[in-house]
């Protein structure tokens, strides 16, 4: 190939297989990391709500983890989990915990005591209180945190290239090494588009999960 333009239809056509593979890997890593992070955070938030001391420990240790740059985090994890996508996923889960646990605790602690008392007065047990009252009311804050975590996870997945599993990051790295502009630009644009699509999907989820908010406004 002689030309090295930023935009190259031929590249996209001839290498569509590779691009789709990288995109799939990227989506798989991101979705797994966010899903695992979400479940773990939820469990941690529920436990931390009852043990305030544990909450302090969880929040401060996860903040320390968050300070470690992701490239260093993947490099530190790989002796344990090897050159696999697991290394990337574990690193991303650790980062998402900071954002998600904090968001969930803020959401759950922000519920007015009156509402909780009213529900208890109506005979709600702890489980029904949580699922029917607290989670729905905390939903906007939880989803806001989930959006932040998802968008930054999509972006950070590219750095998984340091252990050989970076999804679209692999294409960026190879384009960089071979000085091939369309590969770098195509992959970069796809990462941003992926982040925006994920964000929009979560906005949609929030609308479906909190129908009463539309009814009021």
């Amino acid at each position: 190939m002689v030309r090295n333009d930023w935009i190259c239809g031929e590249y996209v056509q001839t290498r569509s297989g590779e691009i789709v593979d990288a995109l799939q890997q990227h989506v798989m890593i991101t979705v797994t990391a966010v899903a695992v992070g979400f479940v773990l955070s939820f469990a941690l938030a529920l436990v931390a709500r009852h043990w305030t001391r544990l909450a302090v420990v969880v929040l401060s240790s996860s903040t320390v983890l968050y300070t470690v740059p992701s490239l260093a985090m993947f490099a530190l994890l790989f002796p344990i989990t090897g050159l696999s996508s697991t290394t990337v996923i574990v690193g991303l889960v650790l980062y998402s915990l900071v954002i998600l646990v904090r968001g969930m605790l803020t959401g759950l602690n922000g519920i007015p005591a009156d509402v909780r008392e009213a529900a208890v007065g109506m005979g709600y047990g702890p489980f029904r209180l949580l699922t029917k009252v607290e989670i729905p009311l905390a939903m906007p804050t939880i989803i806001a945190a989930l959006r932040v975590a998802t968008v930054s996870t999509v972006a950070m997945t590219t750095l998984g290239i340091i252990v050989g599993h970076g999804g679209l990051g692999s294409l960026i790295k190879r384009g960089l090494d071979t000085d091939f502009k369309p590969e770098v630009l195509t992959a970069s644009v796809l990462v941003v588009v992926l982040a925006l699509v994920a964000d929009l999907l979560l906005v949609g989820v929030q609308r479906l999960a909190t129908p009463w908010r539309q009814a009021v406004s």
Binding site: A155, I161, G169, K173, L176, A187, S188, V191, V192, L196
Partner: peptide, 10 residues
């Protein structure tokens, strides 16, 4: 937040 630092640098 949506723009990966790696992509921007590349």
């Amino acid at each position: 937040r949506a723009v990966p630092t790696f992509a921007a640098l590349a």
